[in-house]
Design a protein around this nucleic acid. Structure first.
Lengths: 317, 317
DNA sequence: CTGTTAGCGCCTTCAG
DNA sequence: CTGAAGGCGCTAACAG
């Protein structure tokens, strides 16, 4: 039995008789043989090692939850797809030049990147992506090139859908829309969804920026919600802020959010929201990266979203 | 210039003249040479690859925050210590037998483990640790053997310290102590700290199990807090629950927690708490593992804790 | 179908 | 102090 035959069995190559295959398996078992991935990688010039680049800029629990779901989804899918992923926090490479980063990653044998939480401020990431040295998948950032795909929910449609549900369920005529951060990628898209809804249904739209801040949203609701029929927020956190304001003012307005996060607290109300399923987005990202590895060209992938009602009374820990 | 000379320069070997060293460095720069970690690992039978095993059993945001801090701290320290870490969620291996897990890890060239979030239910992990195939560092689980160290705050002392602070600051005579889960490793230790405090100061201790649940703690506070001078909880989350109860009952009692997590909400009160610094614990774990790699034997490491006052009004996101 | 033979890119003695 | 040579464990042609 030759070394190479074993290799063929291990890698499920054709042209090995069932008999030999069986005997090899047996021997492997007897000898408690443990294949060495490192050597295999070296020999085959394995080309699917990828780095999961994670931005950890804010330390809020909501972000933490989302981040962790990204990591979890990506690692899980990677195992399924049999590609090796190493996790890297952006803070660990943010001080390096794009060239240094490239070298660092290449020395690790990395040829693919999945980037989560990239913002407009991360110029060096943009350069990294544009150098086209790596196959990239950007999560929640609408940017594409030859070797780069992006993935995320269809923010425009999702915001449209969830707001429409709220609006039609409650015969709403005017809406306070609490948008996200001015320069965020998603803000524009979600706002566009709201505008389309306003055009189609004729509701009056009143837009203010909530900065993705619970407190800010709360203040905005205090000032403007009374005169509107409903509040639509571009994130669950802001929706919670608005809802707290409504409760304090002791008035009822339907509220809807985005994200579908698990929250802790005593809000005790329900609201419509978009569940993005970060876990699934990350695993889709891995699959999309695999497509790129196999020669596919960059494209935009929009994942499905679901609309759910969250009842905050139920999620007290 | 021979291949081997370059290798020597790269690995900072002695017996290379400064002149040659300089010339090699220069050439490396000119040629934009990128060393291949994979090959290096194969050749040197590198022995420091480690797996970070993470338990993700509960999906609460508090747990997520802690988990993420563990991951972050470990990855960061690993980079400093120049050891390679791969992240693995326990859910990905929980269905395997210890033998399968061992094979899986060994085939990846892994010889060290850092285990976060292990509970008494994870029997297969215990077996894995006891097989002594890997060098292990257990985070927050007091168990040690020849090749296994454990690390974490001194729960007994920390609980003692923070409660003592609260007790002496407020001239307390009786305390409601809301303990954690019955069978958790940390519960016993923290309770011991409280008992010592009671013995030393003569305060009356009234103990109930809060299961690490905000809701449960709230209920307990409703029932018992009125007749006590202060509430000490074995976690911040439970402290928040208790505090909410106090607010609803409109009575004041000093409250203290554990963990030092960032919380969201409108509790608007302050409380004493133990800041555990999960990030630091994880990075200490990496350093401890390095010690094991270098031939050290298993031991228990207690990390320092700090006492802090949290003002929840300030941490609204 | 099975076995032989080169490497993969680097580290590590061991002579010069 | 420098260079030549033999692997590390595996894969990938290529001959049998």
């Amino acid at each position: 039995m030759a070394i190479s035959t074993v290799s063929k069995v291990l890698n499920n190559y054709p042209y090995v008789s069932e008999e030999t295959r069986r005997r090899v398996r047996e021997a492997i078992h007897e000898l408690n043989y443990i294949p060495n991935t490192i050597a295999a990688a070296l020999s085959s010039k394995q080309t699917a090692r990828t780095a999961l680049l994670i931005n950890l800029n804010t330390g809020t629990q909501v972000i933490d939850e989302i981040t962790l779901q990204y990591i979890h989804g990506a690692l899980y899918a990677a195992r399924e797809a049999d590609i090796e992923i190493i996790t890297i926090f952006l803070s660990m490479i943010a001080h390096m030049t794009p060239e240094e980063i490239t070298r660092y990653l290449q020395s690790q044998g990395i040829s693919g990147l999945i980037i989560c939480g990239m913002t407009r401020e991360d110029k060096y990431l943009k350069e990294l992506v544009d150098s086209m040295v790596f196959k990239c998948v950007l999560v929640d950032v609408p940017y594409v090139n030859e070797t780069t795909s992006c993935i995320g929910v269809d923010n425009e449609k999702a915001q449209y859908d969830v707001a429409k549900k709220t609006v039609t369920e409650n015969k709403v005529k005017s809406v306070l829309y609490i948008a996200g951060k001015q320069d965020a990628f998603v803000t524009t898209e979600r706002l566009a969804g709201m505008k389309r809804l306003a055009d189609e249904t004729g509701i009056r739209l009143f837009v203010r920026c909530g900065e993705f801040s619970e407190r800010k949203a709360r203040e905005l609701a205090f000032r403007y919600a009374r005169k509107k029929d409903a509040v639509v927020a571009a994130s669950d956190l802001m929706a919670i802020g608005a809802m707290n304001a409504l409760i304090e003012m002791d008035i009822f307005r339907p509220v809807c959010g985005f994200d579908g996060i698990t929250l802790m607290g005593y809000v005790g109300k329900q609201m419509n929201t978009v569940r993005q399923d970060f876990y699934n987005i990350a695993s889709s990202a891995v699959r999309e990266l695999k497509r790129l590895f196999e020669g596919g060209t960059g494209r935009r992938v929009k994942t499905k979203h679901r609309l759910v009602k969250l009842y905050y009374e139920d999620v007290i820990i």
